[in-house]
């Protein structure tokens, strides 16, 4: 097998600690599955690790749960789903977008905004959580994947 690695309790706690430092998140509600070096998936199902190992003997497991975060060096960047699933726990490093900025953001464009902050910010517009951006001196870098972007009007 297996390119699927289920993080143990200690590894999960390390991810939770980083998410707490960055966004105030305390708890990931499920198993964390790591694929490759960076990509983290959240699985909320009732299958135990033993069940998963047994299932792997029956069929090739393509994916478990939902991609919710990516490890970038010492930091973690939440995907759109990560920010939506964990929205009730996110208490810091939130950047509120206005309607125009939210549209630009969802088109995949970087935003020329001086936030006065550096690092990853949760992008939010009204009740919508729109993933994570990376703030630097004069802009917020965009990570919206192509298949989730709004198309230009007209």
């Amino acid at each position: 097998m297996s390119f699927i690695k289920i993080l143990n309790e200690q590894e999960k706690q390390e991810i939770e600690k980083k998410l707490n430092e960055q966004f105030g998140i305390n708890h990931i509600p499920g198993l964390i599955i790591q694929r490759g070096e960076e990509r983290l998936f959240l699985f909320s199902g009732s299958f135990s690790e033993k069940d998963i190992k047994n299932l792997e003997k029956c069929a090739f497991i393509e994916r478990m749960g939902v991609y919710f975060a990516k490890i970038i060096g010492n930091n973690i960047r939440l995907s759109i789903e990560g920010s939506q699933i964990l929205k009730n726990q996110i208490t810091k490093n939130i950047f509120e977008l206005d309607s125009k900025q939210a549209e630009e953001w969802m088109m995949g464009r970087e935003l020329g905004i001086k936030t006065g902050r550096h690092g990853f910010l949760i992008m939010k517009h009204g009740s919508d959580f729109l993933g994570t951006g990376k703030a630097s001196e004069n802009k917020i870098g965009n990570f919206i994947p192509k298949n989730r972007r709004l198309k230009e009007k007209g």
Binding site: E62, M64, V66
Partner: peptide, 28 residues
């Protein structure tokens, strides 16, 4: 599944009939 946030799903790839046989043998 990702866009809809279906966190309790496991995606497997196998012919359906063969999968059922394997699942039966494994006691699922």
């Amino acid at each position: 599944l990702e866009r809809c946030g279906a966190t309790n799903a496991i995606i497997t790839r196998r012919d359906g009939i063969a999968l059922c046989k394997k699942l039966k043998d494994a006691g699922f």
